Simulated scan of single mutants.
Amino acid sequence: MDLKAVRTFVTVVDTGQFQEASAVLGVTQQAVSKRIAALEKELGVRLFTRNARGAQPTIDGQAFLPHARELLLAEERALASVRPGRRALRVDVIGAKLAPAALLRDFHEAQPDTALDVVTLFDAGSAVAAVRAGTIDATFRAVTTRLPEGLLAARVLDEPVQLLTGPRHPLADARSVTPAQLAGHRIWMPGMVDGTEWAAYYTALADEFGLTIDSVGPNFGTESLLDAVADSDALATFVAERIRLVWPSGHDLRRIPLTDPTPVYPHSLIWSRANPHPGLAALRAHLADRRPARPAYRTWTPAWAVRGVFPARRP
């Protein structure tokens, strides 16, 4: 549908006259008439009747009017989505319940005027490719390999990993455990997919401390995993400290801190050096101002985890 004709139709309705509409649109009255005639031909109905008072929409014109306004609004939204400085900041997070999403929500609360478009891509490879292509502005991911030329990364959060057990597990009553104490216990993580950054992290963790992480079996989601762990005296799983989990009270699941050292998952923000979006600069500054100090306790991350760069802290 010709949106110029649709805009002309709406302008004629609003002004009540073809001549007034031509002045508003900056075109001749003949051009207004031709656009309306073409639109009527496309729709197969008459949109206006003319009388001494000007142009009045017919019943069909009145029916079409709200849809015409929606079309013009959609056009404006589409244009705004790609205008420099006006489109929403597109940011990828690994999951809505995980820590990076909370960081982004905190930024949105601090800067509500910055429009956000939050997406969830499958893995770091897809997210990095999208940043490089410009289809997203940034992504929160663990950086496992060297980034392509022109992309930068900064560690924004080292999130402790915890052990989750049911009440009958041998470690259920422990106040804390060391990674070395988990050797010989079955850690079940059915959602771990080879080739993803989270699989690379937990594989490195298992190799470092001699752990057995089992990813065999169908992944029916978080609720099914919690049910299985709650009912078992042998199964346990790893969870991030800040993940939001809810389970029935009868499950009596236990979140047990890992210490000496504490494995931490290295969340980083990845962006393109050439990206001029003002919202990206605001997001980076926000994360820099709020990045936590390094903990006093001993932590562990894989050798491939990189720190990256941040803008200077604000005074």
Rank of each mutant, 00 (worst) to 15 (best):
Q162F: 06
P218E: 15
D231F: 01
D158N: 05
G166H: 01
D233K: 14
V229K: 02
G217A: 01
P170Q: 11
G166V: 10
S224W: 13
N219K: 01
G217L: 00
T196G: 07
H169G: 02
W198G: 15
A172S: 11
G221N: 12
V193A: 11
P179Y: 03
W198I: 10
V161Q: 05
A206F: 11
S232E: 06
V216R: 07
T203L: 11
L163A: 01
P160C: 04
V216G: 01
A183L: 08
D194I: 02
V161W: 12
M189R: 06
D227S: 15
P190S: 09
A172F: 11
T212C: 11
G184V: 13
W188M: 02
D194W: 08
A200S: 12
H169P: 03
A228V: 10
G166E: 03
Q162L: 07
V177H: 01
G166R: 00
H169I: 01
L164H: 00
H185E: 09
T203K: 14
G221F: 00
A230L: 08
V177M: 00
G191F: 14
S224P: 14
G221L: 00
L163E: 14
E208I: 02
L205K: 15
V156T: 04
A200P: 13
S215A: 08
E208C: 04
D173H: 08
D231G: 01
D231T: 07
R155F: 11
D231K: 00
T165C: 04
T178Q: 03
P179T: 07
R168I: 10
D231Y: 08
H169W: 08
S224C: 09
P190E: 02
P160K: 03
G191M: 05
P160D: 07
S176H: 05
P160G: 05
V229T: 08
T196E: 11
Q181M: 10
R168P: 07
T165M: 06
P218N: 12
P179C: 09
A200N: 12
D158G: 03
H169E: 01
P218K: 00
H169Q: 04
L182D: 11
P190A: 04
M192T: 15
P170Y: 11
E208K: 02
S215E: 06
N219I: 00
N219D: 15
P179G: 04
W198V: 12
N219R: 02
L164C: 01
A230P: 07
A174E: 06
L171P: 02
G191E: 12
L182Y: 07
D158S: 06
Y201N: 13
A200K: 14
S176D: 01
P170T: 06
T196V: 14
R168D: 14
E223G: 13
R186T: 15
A228W: 04
T212S: 00
L182N: 07
A172W: 15
Y202H: 12
R175H: 13
D231V: 01
D227C: 10
V229S: 06
H169R: 02
A200V: 14
S224V: 10
P167Q: 09
A200L: 11
L163F: 00
R175L: 08
A206R: 07
L226D: 12
V193L: 08
R186G: 05
D173L: 11
I213Q: 02
S215P: 06
